[in-house]
Computed example of a mutant assay.
Amino acid sequence: MSSPSRARLIRATLLLGSLPWCLAPAVEAQSTRPTARDAAIGLRFGELRFEPPQVEKRTLESGVTVFLAEDHSLPLVTLDARFQGGYALLPRSSYAAATALPSLLRNGGTTVLPPDSVDYLLDFYALQMTFGGGGQSTFSSVNTLTQHLRPAVELWTDILRNPRFDSREVEIWRDRQLEGIRRRGDDPGLLAVSEFNRIMFGDHPIGWEMDEEDLDPERMNHEAVFQVYSRIFCRENMILGVVGDVRMADIAPVLEEMVSTWPSCTEPLQDPTPPQLRRGRRVFLIPKDITQSTVVMAAPGGISQSTDPDYFASRIGNSILGANGFSSRLLTRVRTEMGYAYSVSSLWTTPARSEGIVVAITQTKSGSTVAATELILEVMSEMRDRPP
């Protein structure tokens, strides 16, 4: 070996030999750095001050309550109408009609305006109008420029007060639901969640799933929808809210005119009933000739939002368990460490009037179904026995 080559080899050997000595202080310094947990615990924040917006409350002559939060930062006004009543406060025979109600209010036109004329006016005045509902309530809102407030309220009132429930739109909605029922089994995830709700909640509105009997023409037609509408959209069920560039002195007469001819409720709604949750360990299997499994597991959660002091702890616990993506324990263990699934998450429901449930859900290869299920149960047991 030539002298220059020998010299380079010696220098390289000396450099490599000195690396542990060079790196030792860095490794030692790294070991003394605070962990992310230590850093989080060490965070300090100033006193949190929350100043809620000033809300003005007024009861109209008709008896309807109005809440107003003035905000003159933009020339916009949003009006919201909430009605007590939904499919959970009606018999099962009205399930389809009550579910269809928000969609048909938006798409079914009024007694004066056909559906396409409603669409034209919404576009002409640049209105954002929404309709929706849940088990125990139905709602609608409209957002408008302040300068279009009067025509916006008039159109919104016409839709809410004088719905056409166009028979063609009713049939379109019904046909779409029937097609959804026929295709339900094609989506393993949707099928699993649907069956889980039925098994967990039984014959309760939370566990109801639309079926062909619900959509029978005797149950789902123009008259059935109008009957449900009449029970929900009446004066005593209504609360109004307004936010935006308007004052109570200006909006109250407009709302008074809006509700002045609204009929009183003629038939009471059913009282809500809490679900009877399934308890005890059970395994339910839906055989499908596919290469992937959907796993849904759950148990009663023991937390009610309105009365339980552990409500906020449950929100943090659910985030740590599986609701916070890659920083949650389930995704770290099931996906990152073991590679069993692309996605895994948790859900901890906390209803105001009943006990909620704790749920974990994932999809994995058929061959790893048992292993993924056991690992999820292990992580949930760790959360119970060794909480963070």
Rank of each mutant, 00 (worst) to 15 (best):
M1I: 14
R6Y: 09
R11Y: 15
L14C: 11
G17R: 08
P20I: 04
P20D: 01
W21N: 09
V27P: 00
V27Q: 09
T32W: 08
T35L: 11
R37G: 13
I41R: 15
G42S: 09
P52W: 00
P52K: 05
P53T: 12
V55S: 07
V55A: 11
K57N: 10
R58N: 04
V64S: 01
T65I: 09
H72F: 09
S73V: 04
L74S: 12
P75F: 02
D80A: 13
G85R: 02
G85S: 02
L90Y: 08
S94P: 05
Y95M: 09
Y95A: 13
S103W: 08
S103Q: 13
L104Q: 05
N107W: 10
G108F: 02
L121I: 12
L122V: 15
D123L: 11
F124T: 15
G133V: 01
G135M: 04
Q136I: 09
S137H: 13
T138H: 01
N143F: 12
Q147H: 08
E154L: 04
R164G: 09
R164V: 03
S167C: 08
V170K: 05
E171D: 11
R174F: 05
R182I: 06
R183G: 07
G185L: 07
S194G: 14
E195K: 10
E195I: 06
F196Q: 01
I206M: 13
W208C: 05
E209I: 13
M220D: 05
E223L: 10
F226L: 15
R235D: 01
N237A: 11
M238N: 02
L240T: 02
E257Y: 00
V259I: 01
T261L: 06
T266M: 14
Q270A: 14
P274T: 03
R282A: 15
V283Y: 07
V283H: 14
L285A: 11
I286V: 14
I286S: 07
P287V: 07
T291N: 14
Q292R: 10
R315C: 06
G317T: 07
A323I: 00
R329S: 07
Y340S: 01
Y342D: 09
V344S: 02
P351H: 03
V359K: 00
T364Y: 03
T364C: 12
S366M: 14
G367K: 13
V370A: 15
A372H: 01
E378T: 11
E378D: 14
M383F: 09
M383W: 06
D385L: 14
P388I: 12
